[in-house]
Amino acid sequence: MADASQGSAPKPSSSVKLVLLGEAAVGKSSLVMRFVNNDFQENKEPTIGAAFLTQKCPLPTRTIKFEIWDTAGQERFASLAPMYYRNASAALVVYDITKPSSLTKAQHWVAELQRQASPGIVIALVGNKLDLATPSTSPEGADEAAEDENDDDEADARKVPTKTAKAYADEDGLLFFETSAKTGENVAEVFTAIANAIPETQLKGTRGSAAARAQEESRVNLSAGRDTMGAKEGCAC
C-alpha cells in the first residue's frame, strides 16, 4: 500500500511529507481520496486517528512522492497533531467555505504550524466544498474569480467570501485555493502548487528508495528526529 517508488523513469524522485489539518467534516479525507484515488464518496465516515497515504506527483523536472498524513478533525485528536506535522515539509489546512467557524479553526492551525512546525514548512490554505457555492462565483480558477460576492444570494451556501480568506492567506504568506473534492475542481492544482513550492534544496538526498526509507524512519522517530530536521530546514531557508 505504502509501497515506495516503483522505478518511475529516470526523473529524480523525492519524498515530501504532507499533513492535512482542519476542523472535522471539512473534507480533508475527501481531498486526499480525490488526489490519491480520483474518487469521491458522499457522507464519508469521520476519520479515526489518522490515515497515511502516498501519491506521486510528476513535475516537469522531477517526481514528488507525497507521504500524506490525513488527520482526524475532532477536538480529542488535536493533541496528537504535533506528531504528524513536526517533520512535515508541507501542510494543507482545510476549511469549509460554507462554515465560517471552520476558517477560524484553520487560522488556529496555521498559527500553531508557524509556531511549532519546521520553519520552512509550505502551508496551503484550502477552502473546500466549492461545489456548494453558486457556480457563477468561480466556475474555474480559484483565486481571483470570486470577486463578485454572492453572499446575499439566498441559494448560495457559501458563507466565507473568497476575498476574506484570500486576504488572510496573502497576509500570512500561504498558498490559497478553493477546491471541490466532489467535482475534483482544483484538487490536483493544490498538490502541484505545493510540490512546486518546496525548495529543491530541501529535496536533495531524500529519495524514495528502500535504503533511504530506513534513514527516513529514524528521522520520523520524533524524539530523535527533531534536531536533524531542524538542521535541514536551516539550510533550506
Binding site: 479515526i48 489518522a50 497515504l53
Partner: peptide
Amino acid sequence: NMLYEAGGIKAGEGENWIPL
C-alpha cells in the same frame, strides 16, 4: 466493529494509526 461494520476505515484508503 470499527474495521468491518462502521466503515470509517476502509481498504484502499491507506494505512491507519488509531489511538484507542
